[in-house]
């Protein structure tokens, strides 16, 4: 198991190189000069040239990228072009907010999506099921920015129940509700649909009849025999959704002024603050990879067949060594 985990963590290296290379290139190709951004439009050409030289902006592309990678290997994400603050420190300040928002959205998806999916599957083609299917179709298709704006218009502007944006002085519990719903809507819809179809698959399995033939109650049939078997595809979706949630955090955090890493990326991009963007991307890539790894480990606990597959994989690997 440990060897497997190690292998998966090593896979992170090509992922990081690929992701940073793409972001680095894109940032390089977009118009705008970080030196100008830092000095302001009033600066003279000499001042700008001097700063460019100092920041190493005049070096060839690959040299600059190589320098970034070397620093990254040493755990140094550099400093912001604009503010001169340490990127790592800034990210660490913002990550808890992004985690809080993503986990809240995920939790919402689980608490609403799984029961809704179970009920839908148990009452297939009834009014409840049909309504759920239509609602989830809308929920899965509606983009974050639209949902967010609608939420603000209805609940903040018209009804005045919830704050339209996060403020440091406001209540965190109230402030998180709209961003959580906005960010979690897609995931909730997908989790509902996946739970429903996984339950429908499992419902007609012979072992469900075996369980009923034992005379156990319907509650046990549903949870112990059906849901545990339906859980694998549900967990897969949840794991993938977590990556999506981090991506969705970019728009959602911007709409609601949520002080997380998504908004940080948006701000850094408009400032052409390459080190900050790269730092945030590296951090997100690491988080997504670790989450995917965790999902794979959870599989083994949910489904014993997968555990023995892992074991035989490791046995084979040992033989090869």
């Amino acid at each position: 198991m440990l060897k497997y985990i190690l292998k998966r963590i090593l896979l992170l290296i090509p992922v990081l190189i690929g992701a940073t290379f793409i972001v680095f290139s894109v940032m390089d190709m977009t118009p705008g000069d970080p030196a100008v951004a830092k000095l302001g439009v009033d600066a003279t050409a000499e001042q700008i040239e001097e700063l460019r030289e100092e920041m190493g902006l005049n070096d060839p592309f690959l040299v600059r990228y190589g320098r970034f990678v070397l620093n990254l290997v040493q755990g140094d994400l550099g400093t912001s072009y604009k503010t001169g603050l340490d990127v790592m420190q800034q990210i660490m300040q913002r990550i808890p907010y992004t985690f809080l928002l993503s986990f809240a959205a995920l939790l919402f998806a689980i608490i609403v999506g799984i029961p809704a999916g179970i009920i839908s599957a148990r009452h297939q083609y009834t009014v409840f099921d049909n309504c759920t299917m239509v609602l989830t179709l809308i929920g899965a298709s509606a983009p974050h920015f639209w949902l967010g704006l609608m939420g603000v218009i209805i609940f903040a502007v018209n009804l005045g129940w919830l704050p339209a944006a996060y403020t440091a002085s406001g209540s965190l519990a109230l402030g998180i509700i709209l961003p959580m719903l906005t960010l979690g809507m897609n995931s909730t819809a997908l989790v509902t649909r996946m739970t429903r179809s996984a339950m429908l698959d499992v419902m007609n399995q012979d072992y469900v009849d075996t369980a009923r033939a034992k005379g156990v109650s319907e509650r046990i049939v549903v949870f112990r025999h059906m849901l545990r078997n339906a859980l694998i595809p549900i967990i897969t979706v949840l794991g993938l959704q977590f990556g999506n949630l981090l991506g969705g955090a970019v728009t959602t955090e911007t709409i609601f002024a949520w002080p997380g890493i998504g908004r940080y990326i948006v701000e850094s991009i408009s400032n052409k603050d390459t080190p900050c963007v790269l730092g945030a991307v590296v951090m997100l890539a690491i988080i997504v990879t670790v989450i995917n790894l965790l999902v794979d480990i959870i599989y083994a606990f949910v489904d014993p067949r997968i555990k023995s597959q892992y074991k035989s994989m490791i046995r084979r690997a040992k033989k090869d060594v």
């Binding site: 012979d206 005379g215 109650s217 112990r224 545990r228």
Partner: peptide, 25 residues
């Protein structure tokens, strides 16, 4: 009442043993 009969009074062996056991228990 039916649940009490099932398993305790009348029980059943299914056709295909490959699929009639719960794989995660």
């Amino acid at each position: 009442q039916l649940r009490r009969i099932r398993g305790e009074h009348i029980s059943m062996i299914f056709q295909d043993p490959m699929t009639s056991l719960n794989p995660v228990m």
